[in-house]
């Protein structure tokens, strides 16, 4: 009873908060948080398509501005400060994309056969994943699998008697992450079974929690991974 009322007012809060964070948070902040979340989460998160697009445009605009400034004889100090800011943003963007590629490479087979995960990838990332799985499959085939008896020739299964693909590495959602709540979230049930006592998640406090239990909160942006 109390929880349903809490949820009702909670969703109202989300809207205003989202609106406030939309007008007060810069893309630089958003990109930084996307990068932190991506680095700290065990599995691949949704590709921040529009954020990446906007960041790219800002970077391009800034590159043009810097070029213009250095042509027009704006003093070297100012230009170098703009350049530093640009470098920082580019580092964030590159590291964000690269962290995703590392995860894709690691869990390529699993991502490719799981449509929910597959849809989180951008088009170029999907291309990358396909090439990854093709190349890895070919490598396994040529170096090992072709020399094994028939029963063991799959790179997805241990042997023909395996009912499911049991040789596919996937992300451990049971691993623990450290997170910070953006605001008070109230009593939060950590365990599906309901055996455990709910934990009060308070704004700005840090918690070590099982990733799976807070996955929806990460996806909706209510908690940040650190």
């Amino acid at each position: 009873m109390a929880s349903s009322a809490g949820e009702g007012s909670g969703s109202g809060l989300v809207d205003t908060d989202d609106y406030e964070s939309l007008i007060s948070t810069t893309d630089a902040e958003l990109l930084k948080q996307a990068w932190r979340n991506e680095k700290a989460a065990p599995e691949i998160l949704r590709f921040e398509a529009s954020l990446v697009q906007r960041s790219r445009e800002q970077i391009q605009l800034m590159e043009e501005t810097i070029e213009e400034y250095s042509k027009n004889g704006v003093d070297a100090l100012t230009v170098s400060l703009y350049q530093m800011d640009l470098d920082r943003t580019m580092f964030l963007l590159r590291s964000y994309l690269r962290t995703r590629l590392q995860k894709i490479e690691k869990y390529a087979f699993h991502i490719q056969k799981t449509s929910e995960l597959w849809n989180l990838l951008s088009k170029p990332e999907q291309t990358f994943a396909i090439r990854c799985t093709d190349d890895m499959g070919q490598l396994f085939e040529q170096s090992v699998l072709s020399k094994l008896p028939d029963r063991y020739k799959s790179h997805l299964k241990q042997s023909v008697i395996s009912e499911e693909d049991d040789m596919v590495p996937e992300a451990h959602l049971d691993s623990f992450v450290i997170c910070r709540c953006k605001r008070f979230l109230g009593a939060f049930q950590l365990d599906e079974t309901g055996v455990e006592k709910p934990v009060d998640l308070e704004a700005d406090d840090l918690y070590a929690l099982r990733y799976k239990s807070i996955k929806p909160l990460v996806e909706s942006g209510q908690v940040d991974l650190v």
Binding site: I178, L190, D205, L206, Y207, L209, R210, S213
Partner: peptide
């Protein structure tokens, strides 16, 4: 222990 609260810990410590 299903959750640990790390009150006031800093980035480096975390």
């Amino acid at each position: 222990t299903y959750a640990v609260k790390l009150l006031n810990l800093s980035a480096m410590e975390v």
